[in-house]
């Protein structure tokens, strides 16, 4: 079966996010009232798996082994048949 995973990788709450801070500063210069910004990334993966359980397991491997660094990042994923 073909699957599509949308994986979000975010800096952990306790990790300072200089990129988010810079974006917040830039948004404030637009005259907006910005409290704070956290910047992460979205990774979209198209892949094959036997079923949804196997697809979720594969996405777990992707997240843990490569896409997120557990020291500084969390990730979450939406997995669905494509």
């Amino acid at each position: 079966m073909k699957f599509k995973a949308i994986i979000h990788v975010r800096p952990k709450p306790e990790i300072r996010d200089p990129q988010g801070e810079a974006v917040a500063g830039a948004l404030r210069t637009l005259g907006l009232s910005i409290e704070g910004v956290r910047a992460g990334k979205e990774i979209v993966v198209h892949f094959d798996a036997a079923d949804l359980t196997a697809a979720r397991a594969a996405v777990d491997t992707m997240g843990k082994e490569l896409l997120a660094n557990p020291v500084i990042e969390d990730y979450s994923a939406d997995v669905a048949a494509a």
């Binding site: 800096p11 990790i15 300072r16 200089p18 990129q19 660094n69 020291v71 500084i72």
Partner: peptide, 17 residues
């Protein structure tokens, strides 16, 4: 070395960007 787990911690963006 940090990424592969041979050293602890991680290296992130310089605080001043």
């Amino acid at each position: 070395l940090c990424e592969i787990g041979l050293l602890p911690g991680a290296l992130v963006r310089n605080d001043h960007l």
